[in-house]
Amino acid sequence: MSESLELITTSSDEGTLPLPEPQCREIYDKMLTIRRFEEAVLEIYTQGLMRGLAHLYIGQEASAVGICSALNDDDYLTSTHRGHGHLIAKGGKVDRMMAEMMGKVDGYNRGKGGTMHIADMSLGILGANGIVGGGMGMATGAALSGKMRGSGQVAVCFFGDGAINQGAFLESANLASIWSLPVLFVCENNHYGEYTAASDVTAVREHVAERAAGFDMPAMVVDGNDAVAVHQTAVEMVERARAGEGPCLIENKTYRYRGHHVGDGDPEKTYRTQEETDTWLAKDPIPRFARRMLKAGMVDEAELESIDADITKRVEDAVTFANDSPYPTADEVTDHVYA
């Protein structure tokens, strides 16, 4: 069965970029924004300006951006503890996200949720999640709702390689399949759940996407560091879902360059090897995409630098915005327990 699952990838350095230039610019902008945002989170966390647990998305940017660039504004997504990238890719504002990181009143959730719970209902972002597998049922339900309302909306459920071993996956995938729901299950396989290798705790031949066969839904194994491959796969699957043909399972093979969360030590000293990390660093999705834009003549080096400078400034402004925002006042603590 695994024979039928070929890795979907595009040849990165051929000088072709099979997407319109504005779209390429947007994909690049979003990926770099995620990278710079996460670097800023690392910094404020290290400075003690942020509490809780910060799970960085650095290295996985092509997955979120490739998928979300195939969505409409009113499509839904559910995210995870490692959710900052998904939110930015779906259009989340970095200043309000940064304020939420610090628990400030101008944050998306008025400081009540923090890094693991950011939501923006106006963008269809139904929330990051502190529970591994917590979004699977909800994404399925959002797809059911879209179908019942005849809205044409689809739902994307992001989750990790670790989450696919939750019972919730079986139950949600089965429901989505029997009811032909417009949901894309997107497994971001970064090869580890916390400090445990996926291969040690996951019974598959080679790819977690093989499990889709058991639910009679299509499976795709994608080079998750190739924004073009991810995007093209998503476009096809979104179209299929909107046409009423049901769910799919997309496995984006990728890697997180940092630890599980900020402050939990150096992964290369414990549960993974430097060689393995180096292999993945060579496939860094951002320089890879930049090289293609350069070869296609969409940008030159100078412009890449100025794009980076703009993004860096936007993220710095977000940190300033967050720093200047106050904590919510104590009287807010009992607000919003009920609608």
Binding site: R51, G52, G103, K104, N109, G111, K112, G113, G114, T115, H117, P326, Y327, P328, T329, A330, E332, V333, T334, V337
Partner: peptide, 16 residues
């Protein structure tokens, strides 16, 4: 504890 979900914000959590 107060009968509220535990808030993230360092400005609110200690209240609860």
């Amino acid at each position: 504890a107060m009968d509220v979900p535990v808030p993230f914000s360092p400005g609110l959590e200690p209240e609860t």
